Simulated scan of single mutants.
Amino acid sequence: MILYRPTGQKELDLVSASGFKRWPPRLIDQPIFYPVTTFSYAEKIARDWNSILPAPNNFGYVLRFEINRETADRYSVQQAGGRDHEELWVPADELERFNDGILGVMEVVAIYRDGQRVE
């Protein structure tokens, strides 16, 4: 299953430190890790939310990654608003197990700054 994750600079730095192989533990106020199922939904969040924070955190990234079938089957896809807003909901206490199901390495597929795509 191919998934996307919109993220800001701090989370990207932690993912980079793992060699782009693992998502960092959730903060206490983040009970669910939710990658999304489409690039367009991830792009909207990265562009319209992550990239409009005050500098130096005014970057939004979209990461693409793949999980194995066993991991994909463990979690349900949830609709978060519109028809194209689908998320895979992973309880925070299962994130390490989820990370074990990532195939290969994550890839940064888009970067946004101040609401604009950076080429």
Rank of each mutant, 00 (worst) to 15 (best):
V77Y: 10
A42K: 02
Y34L: 00
H85N: 11
A80C: 12
K10M: 09
N58Y: 05
A92K: 09
M106Y: 06
D114G: 10
P25N: 11
K21A: 15
V36A: 02
S51W: 07
G8I: 01
N68I: 09
M106Q: 14
W89I: 04
W89P: 01
L3F: 12
D100R: 12
T7K: 01
V15I: 14
S76E: 15
L12N: 08
E70F: 07
S40C: 06
T38N: 07
L95D: 02
A17L: 01
D48M: 06
Q78R: 12
Y41H: 15
N99P: 09
R74S: 15
R47Q: 13
L95K: 03
F33G: 06
S18R: 01
E66Q: 15
W49M: 10
I102C: 03
S51V: 06
I52G: 03
Q116M: 10
F65R: 03
N50E: 12
D48W: 02
E119R: 10
M1Y: 08
R5L: 10
E87C: 07
I45N: 01
R117A: 15
T71P: 05
V109T: 12
L3Q: 05
D84P: 00
R64I: 02
A17V: 00
F98H: 09
V62H: 04
I28P: 12
D48Y: 05
A42D: 07
E11H: 09
P31F: 00
H85A: 13
D73Q: 14
R113A: 11
R64L: 13
D73H: 12
D114C: 05
Y41F: 15
E66V: 11
D73F: 03
G81P: 12
T37Q: 07
E107H: 09
R97A: 14
N50T: 00
D100A: 11
P31H: 04
W23R: 01
P24R: 00
F59A: 05
L27C: 03
E66T: 13
P35E: 02
Y112I: 08
P6H: 10
E87F: 07
G82N: 13
I45S: 01
R47H: 08
Y34N: 11
D29H: 14
H85F: 08
R69N: 13
N57T: 13
I45W: 06
P56H: 05
Y34Q: 04
K44V: 04
P54V: 09
D73Y: 02
R113N: 15
Y41N: 06
A110S: 11
D13M: 10
R69S: 14
V62S: 05
I111E: 12
Y34I: 00
W89A: 05
P6L: 00
D13K: 11
S16M: 11
A17I: 01
E96M: 06
G101F: 04
I2V: 14
Y112L: 07
P31M: 01
E11Y: 01
R47C: 12
P6Y: 06
L63Y: 07
R113Y: 07
T38G: 04
A92N: 13
Q78I: 12
F20H: 08
E66H: 11
I67P: 11
D93K: 08
V15S: 01
E70I: 12
G60F: 00
Y4K: 04
A17T: 02
E107S: 14
Y4R: 05
A55V: 13
E43L: 03
R47I: 02
Q9T: 13
L3C: 08
Q78K: 12
Q9Y: 09
R74I: 03
N57S: 15
G104F: 06
R47F: 03
